[in-house]
Amino acid sequence: MHIYFMRHGHSIADIENKIESLYDSALTETGVEQAKEASVYFKLKGIVFDEILSSPLLRAKETAEIIGNAQKITPTELNSLKEVDRGILCGMNKKEADDLYPRSEFKNFTDLYPQESGENTYDVRSRSYKAINEVMKRKTNHILVVSHGAILNEIMLSLLSMPSLINEKHGYMFSFDDCEYMHLMRNINSEKLALIEKRVARRD
């Protein structure tokens, strides 16, 4: 089984300098072109997906649909692939959020976002395991998973049994650029996972 975990393309929130999270912004023109480039890249590489799984949030959904259209696949939406819920910070200007809600030096695993909103670290880790389970139980051989940076990072950390990133200061992080993916190969007989490559889906 070959699984490609990919982040969506450039979105409007990137231009607005907003905390994206569950703020449902669409792709920019650049993001649309990135997704189209990704679809060409996969075609040139001879990578044909059996199915595409996507977060229902617009930026991921649009990315998945553009690639899906090129491969004549209708993406399947999974709520477990949504971005990390940052509560009342969703859609807030980043500077305004930092001014109104300064980050503490240490954030507990059980701490929610300001005004007791959003998901805590345990919630996110739990959801990442659910996403992994939903992906791994698919019966197809080549799967593209289109999601978001923070939850994809947590999925990778969960797969590797590594600590979660806390308050962007403590722990580990896998960074995903626009339309960047991590290709994992799973041996279903041994449950062995091998990292094949990590790169942006575009022609060199």
Rank of each mutant, 00 (worst) to 15 (best):
E154A: 03
E119D: 07
S161G: 03
L100W: 07
S147C: 09
N167Q: 08
G149C: 10
S128N: 04
T28N: 11
D98K: 15
L159G: 08
L159R: 02
P56T: 12
Q115M: 09
Y41R: 04
M162E: 10
S164I: 04
Y113S: 01
R86D: 01
Y41G: 01
R7D: 00
D123E: 11
A38F: 07
M162L: 15
E20N: 12
D99L: 15
F174K: 10
I143A: 07
K137Q: 13
E191P: 00
I15F: 03
K130P: 05
D178H: 15
N167C: 03
I3R: 07
E180T: 09
T28S: 14
I188M: 09
L78K: 07
A150L: 10
A70C: 05
E65V: 15
F109I: 07
C179P: 02
A131F: 03
S161Q: 12
R202L: 06
N93S: 11
G118V: 04
V124F: 05
A35F: 01
N69A: 09
N141K: 13
M162C: 10
I73D: 08
Y4F: 15
L22R: 14
M162T: 07
G9F: 01
P102I: 12
I66P: 01
L159V: 05
G46T: 07
R103W: 02
M173E: 15
N79K: 07
L144W: 00
H170M: 07
T121C: 05
M6R: 00
N187R: 03
T140I: 03
L89R: 04
I12T: 14
D204Y: 13
T140V: 09
M162D: 02
E83F: 04
G46R: 04
K61M: 08
H183N: 14
D99T: 14
G31T: 03
E180C: 10
H148G: 05
P56K: 10
S158E: 02
I196V: 15
V84C: 06
I196Q: 11
E20V: 09
E134Q: 14
R125E: 12
E65G: 08
D177V: 00
N133F: 05
K169Q: 08
A201F: 03
V146G: 01
E77S: 09
L100Q: 15
